[in-house]
């Protein structure tokens, strides 16, 4: 998974929620505080990632940052 792939997924969620899309996605970004996701948006994120990459990023516990998503998906 590359930054642009995850950025597309995250921005789809933000735009559907009528939120401003992100121009970049730093690995250190916190999904709640920097991206602005609540638990339902995070659940939507995990469903979308699983449908593309076949991985449930929250299966082993909570994920807080963008880097942790890359670690989970790219470890596969």
């Amino acid at each position: 998974m590359k930054e642009e792939d995850l950025l597309i997924i995250i921005n789809e969620i933000l735009e559907e929620d009528c939120e401003d899309s992100l121009k970049e996605l730093k690995p250190s970004y916190n999904l709640r505080e920097d991206v602005g996701f609540d638990s339902l948006s995070l659940a939507q994120l995990t469903v979308k990632i699983e449908s593309v990459y076949g991985i449930d990023i929250f299966a082993d516990g909570i994920i807080n940052t963008v880097q942790e998503i890359y670690d989970k998906v790219n470890r596969k």
């Binding site: 638990s39 339902l40 659940a43 469903v47 699983e50």
Partner: peptide, 10 residues
């Protein structure tokens, strides 16, 4: 519903 490990379903 679509299952997920965070909220059960969305």
């Amino acid at each position: 519903g679509i299952k997920n490990s965070l909220t059960g379903n969305i």
